[in-house]
């Protein structure tokens, strides 16, 4: 009986998306031990120059070249932390476990942090630094093209009370880190968002990127707001109080609850807190970070 369209596509996609060998050729057998030559022969016609296996292998290689290139472009900092060999192992394992579920390659790395936390063997002995770096790189991708909604206008502040909820711009990403990875990543010259640039051409060969090395990364508690200003992504160092306050605002807390959250564990003197709050809100308003709660939720 003729196979259905769905059946054909499941078999071919499984072959196309199966991992390559270390030499980046198609494996002789799939994960279930079934011969790929037999699978290819079942679905694909040979021609006078290429066997069924070789024709299927073109797509198998193209698939991986494409996702490898996208992932490497999105996480140069992580590659610099881990070095080429470790990074390649992590990338292959991650992409095997997390094939793209989005129409855009921009989202390829969205599960990386969660996956890495449960697969620390790929980032040891640099786990803390690697996690900091990949979180910053993902925040950069998010901030690059997340929405900028209408900001909270100064006149709206007149109507604010303790029970008011306000919002935080979707493109502002908040990070609490253990290393000063911000300067290191800037040094690696990030100037774009994700590699999401979708194209419809084939790659003639796998692009080999130069692995940059990191220098001078120090262990330190660091709070960052990754945000966009005039279409450029910036990493702004913020205080613990800023981080806790902004995180509470993002979480939907009232202003009073957010202010309480800001000073939890704070060493800021009581008499300095009012001035701090005035200055912080003034700055965030000027940056356009605050917005009506309903806008942030959109």
């Amino acid at each position: 009986m003729r196979p259905s369209l769905a059946e054909l596509q499941r078999h071919v996609a499984a072959a196309v998306m199966q991992p390559l060998t270390q030499r980046e050729t198609m494996r002789q057998r799939n994960a279930s031990g079934i011969s790929n030559a037999e699978t290819a022969a079942q679905w694909i016609k040979p021609n006078d120059r290429l066997s069924s296996f070789e024709r299927l292998e073109i797509y198998n290689r193209q698939y991986w070249f494409r996702v490898f290139a996208s992932f490497e472009e999105d996480f140069p900092g992580l590659q610099a932390v881990l070095g080429r060999r470790r990074f390649q192992a992590l990338m292959r394992a991650y992409l095997e476990a997390n094939p793209s579920t989005s129409f855009s390659l921009r989202n390829l790395g969205r599960n990386l942090e969660a996956w890495t936390r449960t697969n620390l063997q790929f980032v040891e002995p640099y786990a803390a630094l690697a996690l900091d770096m990949l979180r910053l790189e993902w925040a950069h991708i998010e901030s690059f093209d997340m929405a900028a909604v209408p900001s909270l206008q100064p006149e709206a502040l007149g109507e604010v009370d303790e029970a008011t909820r306000i919002g935080l711009q979707p493109h502002v990403m908040l990070l609490a880190l253990q290393h000063d990875v911000d300067n290191a990543l800037i040094a690696l010259q990030r100037d774009a968002g994700s590699s999401n640039s979708s194209v419809n051409n084939a790659a003639s060969a796998r692009v080999v990127r130069r692995v940059r090395s990191l220098s001078g990364v120090q262990q330190q508690e660091l709070f960052l707001a990754v945000h966009r200003w005039q279409d450029t992504v910036y990493y702004k160092r913020i205080t613990r109080e800023d981080f806790q306050l902004l995180r509470a605002i993002r979480g939907g807390s009232t202003l009073m609850e957010s202010i309480e959250a800001a000073f939890a564990g704070s060493t800021l003197q009581d008499e300095a807190r009012a001035a701090y709050l005035q200055s912080a809100f003034q700055h965030w308003m000027a940056m356009g970070w605050l917005c009506p709660a309903q806008e942030a939720a959109c």
Partner: peptide, 10 residues
């Protein structure tokens, strides 16, 4: 296939 994207034109 089944919500998984190859990002290729098969």
């Amino acid at each position: 296939v089944d919500g998984r994207y190859t990002h290729d034109l098969l």
